[in-house]
């Protein structure tokens, strides 16, 4: 039994925007997989909610004439996992989505919610950062775009004004074409768990040289982040065993890990050292058409 004061079921984006302006303190809810857990714990109890779950405009995946991929934020993780467009063009996104929650959570949880909760532990954002994904934000008579990376303001706070919501996620052709990638979720068990450190590597090679590399992390700082100083040092580097063994160490200055109730700072630093090389190796070894075990 959940303690809600009210819930409004919006039917269209405009309908939702109107409801949000009318009730600025109301909480937007889509899959609800985090909000309902919060309600059990006493967060937002007795509050007002606006559901955007039934808005058809917020669902689906398509590829436009410029070969840019659009993922609507109301798309569930299992819809992403079964999308032919994703499988064909950005299979690395599958590795970031396949270990989210359990099967039931993936049936109802959405990629938009995974971003807009503003959690550093979310699994999809590091890969979206690695793909330079763009967030499209719609308000009453307004529309703007922002890289997902800069859509975050601080933990649990997104760059959203009253009446604004995320309405599209775009991965541009130039950002995925020719790239391979892989996400490793390191958690304390292999399913139904939260990332202790998540590491995504997206890269492009030219012969045996790294032409481009984008390394990003979950739970390595207050927000999902790119390891930009490490990336700079790695572009143009020759690919060999030594690279895999050392690239993680280069990421350490980029991250700011902490001790929490789950693990120590020391362990997280160790994982930041270990995971990028493993993710890079996996990305490069993949034939790009199947999901490889995220271990």
């Amino acid at each position: 039994m959940y303690d809600l004061n009210s819930i409004y079921i919006a039917k269209t984006i405009d309908d939702a925007i109107g409801a949000m302006i009318a009730a600025p303190d109301a909480t937007l809810i889509c899959g609800g997989t985090d909000i309902l857990v919060g309600l059990r714990d006493g967060v937002k109890v007795g509050g007002d909610f606006i559901s955007i779950k039934d808005i058809e405009e917020l669902k689906g995946i398509y590829i436009d004439k410029d070969k840019n991929i659009h993922i609507k934020p109301g798309t569930t993780f299992n819809e992403i996992l079964s999308s032919d467009i994703i499988k064909q063009h950005v299979p690395c996104l599958l590795s970031a989505v396949i270990d989210i929650g359990g099967s039931q959570i993936r049936n109802i949880g959405t990629i938009g919610g995974n971003i807009c909760n503003g959690f550093t532990t979310a699994d999809a954002p590091p890969m979206l950062l690695g793909l330079n994904a763009i967030a499209c934000i719609t308000g009453k008579g307004t529309y703007r775009q922002k890289p997902v990376e800069y859509f975050y303001v601080k933990p649990e706070v997104m760059d959203l004004q009253t009446g604004e919501l995320l309405t599209d996620i775009i991965i541009k052709h130039e950002d995925y074409s020719g790239y391979v990638g892989h996400y490793i979720k390191f958690s304390l068990r292999d399913a139904m768990d939260i990332a202790i450190i998540g590491c995504s590597v997206v890269c492009k090679t030219d012969g045996d040289v790294l032409q481009d590399i984008r390394i990003s992390f979950a739970a390595a700082g207050p927000l999902p982040m790119r390891a930009r100083s490490a990336e700079k040092q790695l572009i143009g580097v020759k690919i060999n065993v030594e690279l895999f063994e050392t690239m993680g160490k280069l990421c350490l200055p980029d991250v700011s890990v902490i001790t929490d109730k789950r693990v120590s700072k020391e362990f997280r630093e160790h994982l930041v050292e270990v995971l990028p090389g493993r993710a890079c190796k996996q990305a490069l070894s993949k034939s790009n058409d199947k999901v490889v075990d995220a271990r």
């Binding site: 304390l188 068990r189 292999d190 399913a191 768990d193 939260i194 109730k261 789950r262």
Partner: peptide, 16 residues
Amino acid sequence: LINGNFLDYKMPTAVD
């Protein structure tokens, strides 16, 4: 008790 729930109290899942 800081891990008194099934997320933070780790039991092996079917996958484990």
